[in-house]
Nucleic acid binder design. Sequence first.
DNA 1: TCACCTGATGTAATCGGTTACATGAAACCG
DNA 2: CGGTTTCATGTAACCGATTACATCAGGTGA
Lengths: 337, 337
Amino acid sequence: MSSIRELARRCGVSVATVSRVFNTPEVVSQQTRQLVLGMAAEIGYLPNESARTLATKKSHMVGLVWDTDHRRPGWRHPFLQDILVALKSALSAHGLHLLMLAPDPGAGPADPRRFLRAVQRHNVDGVVIIDNGSRDPAVLALADAEVPCVALDLRFTGPTCTYVTSDNAGGGRLAATHLIERGHRRIATITGPAGNWPAAQRLAGFREALAGAGIPLAGDDVVAGDFYLDSGHAAMTRLLARDPRPTAVFAAGDEMAVGAIKAIREAGLRVPHDVAVIGFDDIEVAALIPPGLTTITQDKTGFGTAAAESLMAMLADPATPPEPTMLPTTLILRGST
Amino acid sequence: MSSIRELARRCGVSVATVSRVFNTPEVVSQQTRQLVLGMAAEIGYLPNESARTLATKKSHMVGLVWDTDHRRPGWRHPFLQDILVALKSALSAHGLHLLMLAPDPGAGPADPRRFLRAVQRHNVDGVVIIDNGSRDPAVLALADAEVPCVALDLRFTGPTCTYVTSDNAGGGRLAATHLIERGHRRIATITGPAGNWPAAQRLAGFREALAGAGIPLAGDDVVAGDFYLDSGHAAMTRLLARDPRPTAVFAAGDEMAVGAIKAIREAGLRVPHDVAVIGFDDIEVAALIPPGLTTITQDKTGFGTAAAESLMAMLADPATPPEPTMLPTTLILRGST
DNA sequence: TCACCTGATGTAATCGGTTACATGAAACCG
DNA sequence: CGGTTTCATGTAACCGATTACATCAGGTGA
């Protein structure tokens, strides 16, 4: 590995000049610049990022804190991949790399500082948090990192923190309005786990729009799931047992909606003829299962780009974190309603 | 940020002693060790990884080269997420972080060294390649990195390279055997794009098993797709136009299989009654679309852990790259055959 | 008692860059 | 022509760690 000193020696210039060729080329003469660049190409010189980071305290790396919940490892959501792709390419465009942080090795699995320490050790310029709404203390502790932080789908504020989320309440409203327009009056919903903020917002918007139309949503009409398929199946089974049974159901996540459709079919009923189903997320399967799942779509690419932009804004002006971003949600009409 | 010098000063010891407390604690006296650790906790000292990397040339980071094809950016496969989760947790267990590399900023989108340079700059201890079989020169160039390299689902060897793949030929054989056992004799297949190695292996195994049973596979019985849904739909449409039409189809990827099922339905035919379909991959939707897609499953978790293990082996002994890993494939029986 | 070893610690060079400041030559100006 | 800019470059301190080597005190064996 050739170092800057080696390159400087070969060119007969000082290391400072070489450094300037790469960092502030405009201050070095045309002639010298070409000499240095030519020789650099010849001997395959590349600046060592660790050394640069040490000297400048900028690593050009963004830490990704992800799959944080040690009680539910390997957690995944079909969103993640889309978001990750978008995030990575948005960051790449700004010359930033994404470092997927492992918890600090010195820490136990429940240590609330296990990610904070990993972040601090690595000199990352910023942090993106993709969490499952677990409100894990180790995630919340990241607010103390003196580093720009952007959380995805998690309310997360602080002197250097902001977040990106969907307009969950608006999405809930859209879902309700759609079902009402389709003529439904006996409506139920499968919500997310207690304490999950996005799910609560979806429910709030949904409830609000129903109330506006004078349609009640009784306690029994709201059943909680955990966003996974089986919980949607179980919840739907319970709802079908009600009398009169609902003619339409809003599931706060597509996987649960798929589970619900399965339960409806197993009960010998048809979708949407007997029970209409609307989901939330617009994951890949939504378009593929018959009769096609009507759903509220979230802007997955938007999550990635908005996160990158918020981060860039904070890198430019660390003092003032930007306002949280709220991404619009849209109704996607398919066959299930 | 407190440095090692600051900590040493506060403890009244030398920086060497502090360093030893963290790296070779056994050589420092019990008393000093506790003094240093106590003070470190008090002032929140954490070693700076960039400085360590500079001094030791070990970064504890593994570079991930992914989404490499600039002609098809944002490429994704439902596998990726599962593999990524497994890879990350396997590496975490060894204290390694995963750096998702952006192409070197100084390079154009077609520069064959754009990833190689990114790898070299960052002092990563190793590289994992997740490629779409594009045989992108920029990926192949990584064989020149003097760093342990593990490629996933891509034949990739070299003095410091190895790879992990599924037993694609075996999977193809499984698929053929299954269809034969079901009594099919008019069999066709939707394969992957020309030059795609895994797809070619699947086809080879499939063909071999058919030949063993004395069943011919004519040129017209093999139609190429690109692994995406639409290509499966188009290929199936062509196959259905044949006379006599096939009674069973093997698609080299589940997405194409789903597209094929769609085409069969649109032609007014039933799965599996009129045409049986078997896929490859076992992605999430396979279990969800009716009637359930029979498929050959790949061990996604195995990809992640095998990649991590190969990497660890090369880190331990850089001279001898381990043999490629071939993961077993299994038949998953569902309703489509 | 002396030579030698052992265990704990310190000194200082080193890793590969960046950058404030100094230097020196050429250009410009009245 | 002397003085002031301007431009290109060099010198050397610094970033925060690691580690080879030196040092030194105390113990051991002859």
